[in-house]
Design a binder for these strands. Structure first.
Lengths: 218, 218
DNA sequence: GTGACACTACACCGTGTAGTGTAATAAATA
DNA sequence: TATTTATTACACTACACGGTGTAGTGTCAC
């Protein structure tokens, strides 16, 4: 894993890793909870038990703080997905039958959902990115956007090659998979912000089942 | 800023319907394009060719303006959906075969998408609501949230009764329908804000096809 | 001690912006 | 024409917030 190693802005202080963490954590929580615009730098400093000046000395300003937060959470999501793929959808997995594959897909989606989405209001974070994303033109890791879906698409193509799925367009299939599982959990029950909060496990399970009905090789 | 929030119908001026429209239209366009926070009341007044004072005389303030905009667009969406349902999924429609139903579902989704979603960046509007929605606790018409999905669920249940679909939970099926069609168009290609902009028609068509594969009675 | 450094506390600036008060003016109405 | 009403133009308040400069304090190494 390559780290920054770069000088994005000048005259920043290195400081203690603990304070860096505290600031970044505070920023993430507040951005997610209140939104980027509504979160003041003072509030971040207060929550991190750090002076406002230190926030500016560590990170260059509010916008860079947002960039760092997005980078970090995006990376966490990607790691989580790759981990879950290795755990349930790897090449060596003995997914010989249709039932096994369905179960594996469900397990995969459940693991990703529980490890990242549910924790710390990941849902709100995605909204944050898609909303405040206009401030993120300078995202170093655009990999954030494509990587997850690409990874899933690659696996689906693999299972298609194995004769377990019927997939003509892997990327679209991946979009459908995400739409039926994670997306449903994130914006709860549809695009029109419903208030109902059904069981995440059930939502994911049924979503993946529907995906499987649509894409399994008969 | 924690003052009042209470003066919905008190001391407001009636004024001319034209100016009301102009103000509301300007607010809608700017809120959608720039976001609620980033839009100043001055900008709204400027765009509506009206003095800022008039904006405050007509509507009570910025937040009420947002509420009115959300109410209106939500209503437009609902009307559009009901219209499309009547046009393609009505009881009297001669949907005897499986192929006809699939085609009708596609036509329905395409009509809703083209009449509301594409026009005037409805996508951005949905994001606006889901983001600034915390300011909308006092939404008079909560019908905005439930109605669309409920209407779709009702139709799906009907087709299930007719033996054309296999649906155990109509509401969940409706969620899946929306997720595979409108939601995919709105947040383009997945939850992780992809930059790609494929054809809306193709996205909708393929999404509904996938839905049909998952829910058609074999 | 002395210096180098990290950090805080705090005052401060500039700016953007919600919201109000009011005088002047245009338009409708009597 | 006189009066009332709608609307504008504009000044003005209040305030939140991003960002900076700086004085002072604690800490550690030499």
């Amino acid at each position: 894993m390559d780290h920054h190693t770069r000088a994005p802005t000048k005259g920043l202080r290195e400081g203690s890793p603990l304070k860096r963490r505290a600031i970044l954590d505070a920023a993430r929580v507040l951005f997610v909870a209140e939104g980027f615009e509504r979160t003041s730098v003072d509030a971040v400093a207060l929550r991190a038990n750090v002076s406002k000046r230190t926030v500016y000395d560590y990170y260059g300003g509010k916008s860079t703080l947002l960039v760092r937060v997005v980078e970090e959470v995006g990376q966490a999501l990607m790691d989580s997905i790759h981990l879950a793929i290795r755990a349930h959808l790897g090449d060596e997995a003995s997914l010989t039958g249709s039932r096994e594959l369905e179960a594996a897909l469900i397990a995969f989606a459940l693991q990703v959902a529980s490890s990242t989405i549910e924790s710390s209001d990941y849902a709100a974070f995605v909204k944050l990115v898609s909303t405040e994303g206009s401030h993120l033109t300078e995202m170093s890791g655009h990999s954030l956007a494509d990587a997850p879906e690409n990874a899933i698409a690659e696996r689906l193509a693999y299972f298609a090659r194995e004769g377990l799925l019927e997939v003509t367009n892997a990327n679209r299939a991946a979009d459908h998979f995400v739409a039926l599982s994670f997306a449903l959990v994130i914006n709860n029950g549809g695009v029109f912000g419903k208030p109902s909060v059904p069981d995440t496990t059930e939502t994911i399970t049924e979503g993946v089942r529907a995906f499987f009905r649509a894409y399994s090789a008969r």
